[in-house]
Amino acid sequence: MTISVWPDNKPLDVAAIRDLPEGERAEQLKLVAKQVRRLVVQMIDIARAGHIGGDLSVTDALVTAAFGVLNISPETADDPGRDRLILSKGHCAAALYSVLALRGFFPVDDLETFMKPLSKLNGHPNRLKVKGVEANTGPLGHGLPIGVGSAIASKLSGKNWQTFVFTGDGELQEGSNWEAAMTAAHRKLDNLVVIVDRNRLQQGARTEETASLDPLADKWASFGWEVAEIDGNDTAALLKAFTQNRNGKPLAVIANTLKGKGVSFIEDRVEWHHKVPSKEQVELALKELA
């Protein structure tokens, strides 16, 4: 895969980002997010398949958590006390794989095999095939219950790791999320964060035209969660939310995003849920992401 947006073409020391002061961290995370977006576009171009809209909307939150906050690295992949990042919206595997590749879990070149026959990079992630993947997601509404179990395990074992679960917004129409939301609040799981990629679009239409989610922040608050509603494409705002005081509760970050963020002709258009760009559109997209 071709990488060309690092300053002076020199890859960032991504392992060091977590230790930078907050302002500098947010700036570097923006560079990593741009890189992830370029990789996603190229992966989908090569595979001629994928979920480009959601990949591009969730990228900033994924990158901020993985590189800016959580203890996630190939060196600690089997450490029982490692932080857990769970991509419940498993159809956005391309974004997750790009993050893991940049973090060194596997060679960036492997991304070219995305969805190819017998590739470890299945259309939805598999923990047994790819280090760094914590849950075999794909069917929606699975990640948060698993995250609740992980957060309980963290407290029971005394190892005190963090669990971050990334859900779609349309995904919240699955009732299992709200079952898990009740358990998390009941057990005061302040080591659990759910990030809702609130791009307001689902596969077939706008969420509010399908099964309304608003007022979404109120829903989480009424379930007993601490809530932060932010610009989910802003790494500084994400950093602040991820590290804010949780008041002894699980935290829901409503990340207001643009589906397709970063590519003008894809942004906020329902048809780009899993549409594949033409060769010309790929070039245009990469130009916009340069």
Binding site: R84, V148, G149, S150, A151, A153, S176, A180
Partner: peptide, 18 residues
Amino acid sequence: GIAEQNMVGVAAGLANGG
């Protein structure tokens, strides 16, 4: 509580946690 999907998912998270 009365939440079987959550129950099995929570078990998977606990297994993930050792």
